[in-house]
C-alpha cells in the first residue's frame, strides 16, 4: 500500500480550439477532457501500466476557458493494479472527482 499526495497544475488555455466546438457561444471544457488531464498527470508515474477503468467520476461544476486546474492525486496499490483517486479543483472549489484504475500492460 502506497499513498502519495501530489498536485499538478493545468492551465485551461482559452485559445484551445476545443472551445470553438464545445459549445459555440458557450465555451466549456468537456468533462471527459478533465479525466484526460488527470490521466496525463499520473501515467508517467505508472510505467508499464495502462489505464483499464474509470471506476467512477463525479462532475460537480463546468470548467471554463482560463481556469487553472489543480489535480490532487492519491495512489493505492491494489493487487495487480493501482487505483488512483483524483480531486480536480479550480479557484472556486472542486470540479471533478475521479477514480482511475491502472493495470499491468497485457497486449
Amino acid at each position: 500500500m502506497t499513498a502519495v499526495e501530489e498536485g499538478t497544475r493545468v492551465f485551461v488555455d482559452p485559445a484551445d480550439p476545443v472551445f470553438a466546438g464545445h459549445y459555440p457561444g458557450f465555451p466549456i471544457l468537456p468533462g471527459l477532457f478533465v479525466v484526460q488531464h488527470v490521466h496525463e498527470a499520473v501515467r508517467d508515474r505508472l510505467p508499464g501500466m495502462r489505464v483499464s477503468a474509470v471506476q467512477r467520476a463525479k462532475f460537480l461544476s463546468p470548467v471554463f476557458p482560463g481556469d487553472s486546474l489543480l489535480i490532487a492525486t492519491t495512489f493505492a496499490d491494489d493487487g495487480d493494479s493501482v487505483l488512483v483517486t483524483a480531486v480536480v479543483s479550480t479557484g472556486t472549489g472542486p470540479v471533478v472527482e475521479v477514480k482511475l484504475r491502472y493495470s499491468g500492460s497485457a497486449s
Binding site: 468537456p30 468533462g31 471527459l32 495502462r50 489505464v51 483499464s52 477503468a53 474509470v54 471506476q55 467512477r56 467520476a57 463525479k58 462532475f59 463546468p62
Partner: peptide, 11 residues
Amino acid sequence: LITGIRGVSLL
C-alpha cells in the same frame, strides 16, 4: 453536461 460515470472498462 455530464454529471457522472461509473463502471467504465477500457478493455
